[in-house]
C-alpha cells in the first residue's frame, strides 16, 4: 500500500506542488519568528532548509504540522496549503497523520520496539494483529532497520543505539503512512555512520514521500536535498536547486553562511 500511494503521487507529474506557503507570519508572544514567507514544496522532492540558530527554520517546519500551536503565545497570519487545502481547516489529527515528523533527538518511547512502530497506527483504526505485524515489517524495512532488530522486536526500544533509535522513529512515522515527512535536524545527535544510514533512507524515501529537511549541517543539505532554502532572522533569503545554492548563491548572506563565515 505504501508503494501504491507513492506511485500515484508520482504519476501526477514531477513538479506538482505538494505544499504551498503564502505570506506566512508567525509570532511567539511579541517575537516575530517568521516574516512573510512564501514558498512551494514539490511532490517527491527533498527540500533542505538551512540557516543559523533562531532563523525561523524550525518554526517553519513545525507550522507545517501545526505543532507550533502548542506553544504559549503563538499567533499566525497567512496560509499554508496542503494539496491546495488550508491546513488550518484540516483537523490537526488528520493533518499530522499526513505529515509525519522526525525530531532532532531520537524520541523513542520507553516501550518495546514493536510497540513503538505501531504506536500511531494502532490508535488510528482497528487493525488486526497480522496487519500490524506486516506494517511493522514494512516500516522497519523501509528505514533499513529490519535486519538489525527483527529478532528482538519485544525488547525495549531504549536499548537501541542512537542511530537505530532514529531509524526506528522513521519507521514509526512511516507506519502511519504519511505523504510528507518533516525532518527536524534528524542527525544532530548521531555519529557519521549513523548519519549516513539515515541519509540513505531519506534518499530512498523521496521516491514515495515529500520530504522537508531542516538541518544545521549545510553539507547534509548539499548531500541529500534537491532544492535548498536559506533562512535568516525569520526570513527566507534564497531558495533554489541545491547545487545552485552551494555553487552560485544569488545573495551574499547565503554565500557567507555556506562558507561558514557566521552561524
Amino acid at each position: 500500500m505504501v508503494e501504491n500511494k507513492g506511485k500515484s503521487q508520482k504519476e501526477k507529474g514531477k513538479s506538482q506542488v505538494k505544499i504551498e506557503v503564502k505570506e506566512l507570519n508567525i509570532w511567539f508572544g511579541k517575537v516575530l519568528a517568521l516574516k512573510s514567507l512564501n514558498l512551494e514544496i514539490q511532490s517527491n522532492e527533498i527540500l533542505g532548509v538551512i540557516g543559523p540558530a533562531s532563523s525561523g527554520k524550525t518554526s517553519f517546519l513545525r507550522q507545517l504540522n501545526r505543532l507550533n500551536e502548542l506553544e504559549a503565545g503563538f499567533r499566525m497570519e497567512g496560509e499554508v496549503l496542503l494539496d491546495e487545502r488550508d491546513i488550518c481547516r484540516i483537523k490537526p489529527e488528520h493533518l499530522r497523520k499526513n505529515i509525519g515528523m522526525i525530531f532532532a533527538l531520537p524520541q523513542v518511547l520507553p516501550i518495546s520496539i514493536y510497540d513503538n512502530v505501531v504506536y500511531g497506527v494502532r490508535m488510528h483504526d482497528g487493525k488486526s494483529k497480522s496487519e500490524l505485524d506486516a506494517i511493522v515489517e514494512d516500516s522497519l524495512k523501509a528505514s533499513f532497520l529490519w535486519d538489525e532488530v527483527k529478532d528482538r522486536l519485544k525488547e525495549f526500544a531504549t536499548k537501541l543505539s542512537g542511530g537505530q533509535q532514529q531509524r526506528l522513529c522513521i519507521s514509526r512515522t512511516l507506519a502511519v503512512r504519511p505523504e510528507v515527512i518533516l525532518f527536524d535536524e534528524p542527525c544532530s545527535g548521531l555519529d557519521p555512520i549513523s548519519t549516513a544510514k539515515v541519509e540513505e533512507s531519506m534518499l530512498r524515501l523521496k521516491e514515495q514521500y515529500t520530504i522537508v529537511l531542516v538541518t544545521n549541517n549545510t553539507k547534509q543539505a548539499a548531500r541529500v536535498a534537491d532544492r535548498t532554502a536559506f533562512f535568516l532572522m525569520g526570513e527566507l533569503i534564497e531558495i533554489d536547486k541545491t547545487h545552485k545554492i552551494f555553487t552560485a548563491p544569488q545573495d551574499k548572506r547565503t554565500e557567507d553562511y555556506i562558507q561558514g563565515r557566521f552561524g
Binding site: 489529527e93 493533518l95 509525519g100 525530531f103 524520541q107 500511531g120 522513529c169 512515522t173
Partner: peptide, 19 residues
C-alpha cells in the same frame, strides 16, 4: 517530547495523554 511525538503521529490530545 513524548507528547510531541504522539501528537506528530496524528493522535488526539486525549489519546496522547492516555497512551
Amino acid at each position: 517530547s513524548f507528547r510531541e511525538v504522539s501528537l506528530s503521529l496524528g493522535l488526539s490530545r486525549w489519546q496522547t495523554i492516555r497512551h
